[in-house]
Simulated scan of single mutants.
Amino acid sequence: MAPVAQTLIHETADNARAGAMGKTKSGKALKIRSYPKFDSLEEERLYRKQHLAAAYRVFAERGFDEGVAGHISVRDPLLPDHFWLNPLSKHFSQISVSDLILVDEDGDVVIGDEPINAAAFAIHSEIHKARPDVHAACHAHSVYGKAFSVFGRELDMITQDSLRFYKNHAVYGQFGGVVLDREEGRRIAECLGDGKAIILQNHGLLTVGETVDAAAFWFLSLDKTCHAQLLVDAAANGSGHKKTFIPEEEARFSYEQVGTPAKGWLGFQPYYDDILAKTNGSFLK
């Protein structure tokens, strides 16, 4: 190997190690994005609402809308047993901060003048009750998510991205029609357990997170992972090729690199920046 090539390889390795420690090779601190700190709960409320509205816009861009189906919720920091949702009949692409509806634990509208999706309340209220650590939940009828849900099975750990859900997702293996009963919501919450995602049989996907950013990113990633799984299964069917599964030790180690709440929050920030630029911040009003 040429000396120049060896030098580049060593420099790349050194820079990677320096980057992992949060500093440049010269010792200068790197600017690492992280969840902001707030001076008041009012400030955090606004932040959560802004990122909730952004998540709806991002979902719209990816075709996760389907009439009045689908919903994203975020817990209110001032009133922890209340959460913000989208108005029933407003398209995801049009949702702004001022459109968001605040409901209490009984589903009564506290702020806003439009109804919410009754299924959203039945599912999300029970998840928020069961999981105090969960501040946001996303559910939509994405094409690949609902296609994969038909099989009623967990994901195979066959790609690096699938490892975000390693031992951290569940399958709700029954379809009880449109979820209008809170008891159904309780069963879904119980099945979810302490995981970050659940595949709802013949229905679609649901993800949760400590932040709306993380919950939204997990949903984006889960839908793409379902897409990849469908492609792999289709290609393997009758071809004679066997799928290569990622070993347990590597999967467990990699989960810590790609599946933590902080990585979920960080993963959504490029999407937030992108929708902010594309809309000139129109969702912030």
Rank of each mutant, 00 (worst) to 15 (best):
197 A>T: 03
183 E>C: 08
180 L>W: 01
166 Y>D: 04
171 V>L: 02
166 Y>T: 04
165 F>M: 08
183 E>I: 13
196 K>E: 02
197 A>W: 02
189 A>P: 03
185 G>V: 00
172 Y>V: 01
174 Q>A: 14
187 R>V: 01
167 K>Y: 10
189 A>H: 05
194 D>A: 11
188 I>C: 03
166 Y>G: 07
185 G>I: 08
188 I>A: 05
182 R>A: 11
192 L>C: 06
184 E>D: 12
171 V>W: 02
175 F>H: 09
182 R>D: 07
180 L>N: 02
189 A>G: 07
196 K>H: 09
197 A>R: 00
189 A>F: 07
173 G>A: 11
170 A>F: 00
197 A>K: 00
178 V>L: 15
195 G>V: 01
178 V>S: 03
182 R>H: 11
179 V>W: 03
186 R>T: 06
164 R>N: 02
165 F>Q: 07
177 G>A: 14
176 G>H: 12
175 F>L: 14
178 V>P: 02
176 G>A: 13
181 D>H: 06
190 E>G: 06
192 L>V: 01
197 A>P: 03
187 R>T: 04
196 K>V: 05
168 N>C: 12
171 V>H: 04
194 D>Q: 10
195 G>K: 11
181 D>I: 12
185 G>F: 08
198 I>W: 06
172 Y>W: 09
168 N>D: 14
176 G>S: 12
184 E>N: 06
176 G>K: 09
169 H>K: 09
176 G>L: 15
198 I>C: 04
187 R>Y: 07
165 F>S: 00
193 G>D: 06
188 I>W: 04
180 L>I: 11
184 E>R: 07
170 A>S: 14
189 A>R: 08
171 V>F: 02
182 R>M: 10
164 R>L: 13
191 C>D: 06
185 G>E: 04
178 V>I: 14
164 R>H: 08
195 G>N: 13
184 E>P: 04
191 C>P: 07
165 F>W: 14
192 L>D: 00
173 G>D: 10
183 E>G: 10
178 V>R: 04
175 F>I: 08
182 R>L: 11
182 R>P: 00
195 G>S: 12
174 Q>M: 13
169 H>I: 01
186 R>I: 05
172 Y>T: 03
164 R>C: 08
173 G>E: 13
168 N>T: 02
185 G>P: 02
185 G>A: 05
164 R>F: 13
178 V>K: 04
187 R>N: 13
191 C>Y: 08
186 R>F: 09
187 R>G: 02
194 D>S: 07
183 E>K: 10
198 I>V: 15
197 A>Y: 01
168 N>K: 12
177 G>K: 05
164 R>D: 10
179 V>F: 05
195 G>H: 08
167 K>I: 05
189 A>L: 14
184 E>V: 12
165 F>C: 05
174 Q>H: 14
188 I>F: 00
168 N>W: 12
176 G>P: 00
180 L>R: 04
170 A>L: 01
172 Y>M: 06
197 A>E: 03
182 R>K: 12
